[in-house]
């Protein structure tokens, strides 16, 4: 095996000591970059150098480093998760860059995702949305018979497409309105497509949308920057589905007959 040719880049990184503090860009040379390093590994090496010099390392979020946890969250040269299509920051490799490149690295920007430190943002707003309706009521105890609830193959596939969302927030970061519609659409669709998700279908979409609005995410202007930045390539067709689901739920909930008094719900 031949050793790949290393190269040098300059990274221009957002540094911010803590929440609500002034931040600024600082440039660091990254020398001897191996093209097979991931972007995060390049930052690791840079951080080792910074630590060796007694400087504060660059804080960035990461966990699985294989594109499944949704923790990594960098905006690289103006695009969430970097230049490639359908990958997370952790799956972005230095071979996507060239010798001498100046790479600008910023945190996800949205009012609902405040910066905690450097490139780390607080995305717990997504958890709040998820808690508002991203669940089903299920009997606990022994596992149910697997074939008891038939699901047509194409419906199962579509639900799985939606379920691919890793909750990273790149859709919000890419959107000029900081809208969380793609995330909410995938969560609502993933459960709403399956029989297990039907009992809460209307209450789920109403609760998740009102929580999303309440947290200060913007509305959707149908520009589809979200799906282009999504590491899981979640389709904006799910946003159309969310719009439809929401509209139906709004009208159904307004005209649905209520049970006579005395019911305890």
């Amino acid at each position: 095996m031949t050793t790949p040719k290393t190269f040098n880049v300059t990274v221009r990184v957002w540094r911010q000591v803590g929440p609500g503090r002034e931040g600024r860009f600082v440039e660091y040379p990254a020398r001897g970059v191996n093209p097979d390093m991931s972007f995060l590994e390049m930052l690791d090496v840079l951080n080792d150098e910074l630590a060796a010099r007694g400087e504060e390392p660059i804080a960035f979020s990461h966990d699985c480093r294989e594109g499944i946890c949704g923790t990594c969250s960098l905006v690289i040269n103006g695009k969430p998760h970097g230049p490639n299509h359908g990958v997370a920051s952790c799956q972005t490799y230095m071979r996507s860059f060239r010798d001498g490149d100046r790479i600008v690295v910023e945190p996800f920007r949205a009012r609902a995702f405040p910066v905690i430190k450097d490139l780390v943002t607080d995305r717990s707003a997504f958890d709040t949305i998820q808690q508002a309706g991203g669940f089903i009521t299920a009997r606990t105890g022994s596992a149910p018979e697997a074939n008891a609830a038939p699901v047509p193959k194409h419906v199962a596939d579509l639900a799985m497409d939606a379920a691919q969302c890793i909750g990273c927030g790149a859709c919000v970061a890419a959107c000029k309105n900081s809208s969380a519609m793609l995330f909410v659409a995938s969560k609502v669709s993933h459960l709403g497509l399956l029989p297990q998700g039907q009992p809460e279908r209307d209450s789920r979409v109403l609760a998740m949308v009102s929580t999303m609005d309440g947290l200060g995410f913007g509305g959707c202007t149908n520009q589809y920057e979200c799906s282009a930045a999504c590491p899981k390539l979640i389709s904006h067709d799910f946003i159309a589905r969310l719009n439809r689901d929401y509209t139906k739920a709004v009208f159904r909930s307004a005209f649905k007959p209520e049970p006579a008094g005395g019911g305890e719900t």
Binding site: R12, N77, R109, A110, R111, G216, G218, G219, E225, A228
Partner: peptide, 22 residues
């Protein structure tokens, strides 16, 4: 919607602004 969207963006904007497919 436009006012809310601007507010949702937050105080700090991106240094590199890029459109992907809009």
């Amino acid at each position: 919607l436009a006012i809310e969207a601007r507010r949702a963006r937050g105080a700090e904007s991106y240094a590199v602004k890029k459109w992907i497919q809009a």
